[in-house]
Nucleic acid binder design. Structure first.
Lengths: 282, 282
DNA sequence: TGCGAGACTGTAGAAAATCTACTGGATGAG
DNA sequence: CTCATCCAGTAGATTTTCTACAGTCTCGCA
């Protein structure tokens, strides 16, 4: 039979005692705690009964603390103050929300929206984990992840389609200056092709031979090279939308491809929704 | 609209959190607090919901504290420890019971019984206020009083008859050596009479003239003089019972008198009986 | 692989605690 | 005397807390 670590009186009664002891008046304490005077009187009475001693002397116009009541009040007030301050610190601390994304998503989608997120959520600290690896929600303390996947998610995760992965071939307008767009597959093969780690040119052009061209380990690097006029890059439309609109890149062929995997926004299914996570999610 | 001095979460939930955080296991915390594990899970869940953040990570074989949960636990445990220690000190402190009595009652009744009271109530500090004045219960912090009175008591006081005031004339056996007892009134008048502040010899002997003899302001002093053979004293039988039985005093006449006032044990009627006062009262 | 143990989640309803509205009593001030 | 203030007490309403139970997941063992 495990004994309680400490024998505490009913905490609600203790709270009524503490407020009454500060105010020396049940009616005022009741008002402070948002209950009726009768409720406070009952709680204090119950506490006195349980402890077997008087904490207050009842006067016609209020209360006086007994010597014992005064000594106890000092300690109880300090303890409740500590609880109140600790709770206040907890609530005041900006909440950290961790998002796991690939470097490309970070560069092309998240960073341009950071200012917008910050202004919408001033009390949230946003922490970005940019990695190609699949994050483990618990191990990495990740709240939200953006994942490219065609698979169904386990029941513990909650997912929402972010955007379809539609691949387009784009290049700098300087690179294709003088050429008539859109280009055919053969014309495209004559241009320098930029490869990233996904290496999807063969599938896109329906060519089995290895295609020459500069290779990068991150899509975002390949995109930077395209922007610099180094060649044509094959990338998801969502990543290049802003550059297309700004004219920094042009779509060089009408052909597009989808690969059956799309980008999802994923979070751990939780029975205790956290407000900050919800806000970022929306 | 008065705001609460501090915004505290439900204290019961806080207690469940604290025990769970120490034990890192709902089942063990439940056992410690004497409730079911389901109750603990509900309370912690409710606290997390109210605070809008996670305090624990649920693992297959127990709990892990989040960073926020750990910081909070440290403060909450300290506060609850403080409450437990303060309560323990309160309960461990010997309780003081104050008794207001006349010097005569103190000398003749209370002091002879002090050893008996101490052994019966080892945890009680007995404080005796010996005074002829009527004590005010609240002003003088008096718990119990012995009062000579014929009046009904106000509704705020609770009274119990201690003993009847029966006056007897007693003297030292040496003083009446050679006299035939019991003495008549005339014979009594020939002996030195000892007067106290009540001065009841006239009434006792049905004599209107002032009777000569030594006078004392306290009955107990007159009794001491009688014991020393200085004269005859008129005192309440209860005060001289022990001396009569021991042969230090003898009753010199069969006449007795009652004056319509008796000795009562009185205490303030309280809706919160205090255990120590109860014990002294019995 | 299946099974059992451990531990948390969730539900519906029972039990306990807390509360309210009201009345009564005592005191003090005018 | 009246009125205001404030605590005590009661009966019943409301809220909180709890229980018993079933379900789910993970881990360890044979």
């Amino acid at each position: 039979m495990i004994q309680s670590r400490r024998a505490l009186p009913p905490l609600n009664a203790l709270r009524a005692f503490e407020a009454s002891g500060r105010r020396l008046n049940f009616r005022a304490a009741a008002q402070e705690l948002g209950v009726t005077q009768g409720a406070i009187a009952q709680q204090v009475r119950a506490l006195e009964d349980q402890l077997g001693l008087m904490l207050f002397q009842r006067l016609p116009r209020g209360l006086a603390l007994t010597a014992q009541g005064a000594a106890y009040l000092s300690d109880v007030t300090r303890a409740f103050d500590m609880l109140g301050e600790a709770t206040g610190r907890l609530l005041a601390r900006p909440e950290t929300v961790t998002i796991s994304v690939t470097p490309t998503v970070a560069a092309k989608l998240l960073i341009p929206r950071l200012a917008e997120l910050y202004s919408a959520l001033p009390d949230v600290d946003l922490r970005t984990v940019a990695t190609e690896a699949l994050s483990d929600f618990d191990r990495d303390q990740v709240d939200i992840a953006v994942r490219l996947t065609s698979q169904a998610f386990p029941a513990t995760l909650e997912a929402r389609l972010l955007f379809r992965q539609e691949l387009v071939a784009v290049a700098s307008p300087h690179l294709v200056k003088g050429l008539t767009l859109p280009l055919s597959g053969e014309e495209l093969c004559k241009l320098p092709l930029l490869h990233d780690s996904h290496d999807r040119w063969g599938m896109f052009l329906r060519i089995r031979e290895k295609l020459p061209g500069a290779a990068f380990n991150h899509t975002t690097l390949a995109l930077d090279a395209a922007l610099a006029g180094q060649g044509v890059v094959l990338a998801c439309r969502a990543f290049v939308a802003a550059d297309l609109e700004a004219g920094r890149l042009v779509q060089v062929t009408n052909a597009t491809a989808t690969i059956g995997a799309d980008y999802f926004l994923v979070r751990k299914r939780s029975s205790s929704p956290r407000k900050a996570v919800d806000a970022v999610w929306d």
